[in-house]
Computed example of a mutant assay.
Amino acid sequence: MGKLIASVSCTLDGVYTGPKGDENNMVSWAMPGIMDSVNDNLGMFQKAGAILMGRVNYEGLASFWPFQEGEFADAMNQTSKYVATRNRELTDVHWGDYGDTISLLSGDLKPCISELKRKIEGNIIVPGSADLVQSLLNAGLVDEFNMIIHPVILGSGNKYIESIAIRNDLRLLSTQLYETSGSMRLCYEVAKQN
């Protein structure tokens, strides 16, 4: 059975995008930490059984990774990918020359993702995709968070976790300091509700 891991880079104040008005620009704050943690992130994606993403993240990643080369591109392109969306206009998904590695999930989120977790061996990584992660957390489907906190306070931009229905307790699994950037990886297990 697959374990669903939400993975994100965010600022100390929880922003995972660029600042308000420049939301697509994470480069201004995230790049030092991303470069510092690239080998660990590569390892995470190389070991993944699948990648799950929302529509917006899918559109961004699908326009980039299929046209890249190297180890990270291989991990992103060759791993099975799934897109979960509420947008009914999205009826087909593509991933460059790797079309056999991507599928569109349709139907109710909870049974659909529960079935995916039963089907996948290994970790299911959810990179970014804040709206999807919030829905998954509200449905009790997130098993772990793998977050890189960057030493920046933006004060504006989109927060990674905003709309959570109930309290979720977390148990710290590990920490890792990236000394060059001052970023910190925090891995938490989501305590299951009774």
Results as ranks from 00 to 15, higher is better:
Asn194Gln: 10
Pro151Ile: 08
Asn194Phe: 09
Gln134Gly: 09
Tyr98Asp: 09
Thr11Ile: 11
Ile34Leu: 14
Ala73Tyr: 02
Met44Trp: 05
Trp29Pro: 03
Val152Ile: 11
Ser174Cys: 10
Leu132Lys: 10
Gln193Gly: 00
Ser156Arg: 07
Thr85Lys: 06
Ala48Phe: 02
Glu59Ala: 03
Val56Asn: 13
Gly155Thr: 07
Arg167Ile: 05
Ala165Ser: 14
Asp22Trp: 04
Ala165Trp: 01
Glu144Thr: 02
Arg86Lys: 14
Leu90Asn: 03
Glu115Gln: 13
Lys20Ala: 08
Ser174Gly: 11
Lys192Cys: 02
Asp92Val: 11
Gly54Asp: 09
Leu116Cys: 06
Gly2Val: 10
Tyr160Ile: 09
His150Tyr: 07
Asp74Glu: 11
Gly99Ala: 01
Leu61Arg: 03
Trp65Asp: 08
Asn123Lys: 06
Met53Ile: 08
Gln68Trp: 02
Met76Asp: 06
Ile5Cys: 01
Pro111Ser: 11
Gly2Ala: 15
Leu90Thr: 13
Tyr188Glu: 03
Lys159Pro: 03
Ala139Ser: 12
Gly60Ala: 06
Gly155Lys: 06
Asp143Gly: 09
Leu172Asn: 04
Gly122His: 12
Gly14Gln: 09
Val8Lys: 08
Arg185Asn: 07
Asp131Tyr: 14
Ile124Cys: 04
Val142Cys: 02
Pro151Thr: 04
Asp131Thr: 15
Val126Leu: 12
Ala50Cys: 10
Leu172Phe: 03
Ala6Pro: 00
Glu69Pro: 08
Met35Ile: 08
Leu104Arg: 14
Val133Gln: 02
Asn77Val: 08
Gly182Asn: 03
